[in-house]
């Protein structure tokens, strides 16, 4: 006998029955949530193993072969999650990650808000100007780092043009290190802002749903 999970339906019915102010909307679809947490996990694996490969910690005698495997496997997973997110964005025609001119125009106002020169952030799309800039830069840099990583993984067997383009293995290593530093500098910022700006967005990354506040009565 098939047992249906009876929790969700009445729960949402209850929610919709005016128990909260405003409307409950789907803010983060399932594939976005899968991508977010999957990518977060695999990127953490890449960054930590990459740092260990870059500068082995004195207190941590670990098999380098294993560390390299963790690095490569995490990278393949992360690439897979990115592919998933891109496919999802194409299917849903979701442009929320692509920065728009309007985002750039509003960026100074957003900065003014973060610097306490304004009391409220400017109106934004799903993501604000800062978020869309950082998220799209992550995507771009992740893809660049993956390309560099793959070309060093294949040792010039494939993607030789990448080696030639950047001017050698050492420079390739250096660019990847700098990209790592960019990630390490911006990820804490992302975590900090997501925990202090709007907790409801953060929970939507788990539940998917979020309360949309009622339109302001004027």
């Amino acid at each position: 006998m098939k047992k249906k999970n009876n929790l969700r339906k009445p729960f949402f019915e209850e929610l919709q029955q005016g128990n909260v102010e405003g409307e409950i909307i789907l803010f983060q679809p399932l594939w976005v949530r899968i991508f977010h947490w999957g990518f977060a996990l695999s990127l953490t694996g890449i960054l930590l193993s990459g740092l260990e490969l870059h500068k082995p910690a004195k207190f941590f005698a670990v098999s380098y072969g294993d560390m390299f495997k963790i690095h490569v496997i995490s990278s393949w997973f992360a690439l897979g999650f990115v592919a998933l997110r891109c496919a999802d964005a194409i299917l849903r025609r979701d442009q929320s990650l692509i920065p728009k001119l309007r985002d750039l125009k509003l960026f100074p106002k957003l900065l003014a808000y973060y610097l306490f020169l304004r009391t409220a952030p400017p109106p934004n799309r799903k993501y604000n100007g800062g978020q869309s800039l950082v998220y799209s830069s992550w995507l771009l840099l992740f893809l660049i780092a993956s390309l560099l990583g793959l070309s060093s993984y294949w040792q010039g067997e494939h993607l030789i043009w990448v080696w030639r383009l950047v001017g050698g293995f050492q420079r390739l290593r250096w660019i990847k290190f700098m990209i790592t530093i960019y990630f390490l500098a911006t990820i804490p910022l992302h975590i900090y802002l997501s925990m202090t700006e709007n907790l409801s967005h953060l929970q939507a990354m788990v539940s998917g749903y979020e309360r949309k506040p009622p339109p302001k009565k004027s």
């Binding site: 729960f11 209850e14 929610l15 128990n19 909260v20 102010e21 907790l199 409801s200």
Partner: peptide, 13 residues
């Protein structure tokens, strides 16, 4: 921000 972004329902489940 925390107060604004967390909401209490009219009644608890």
């Amino acid at each position: 921000n925390l107060l604004k972004s967390t909401v209490r329902g009219k009644h608890r489940f």
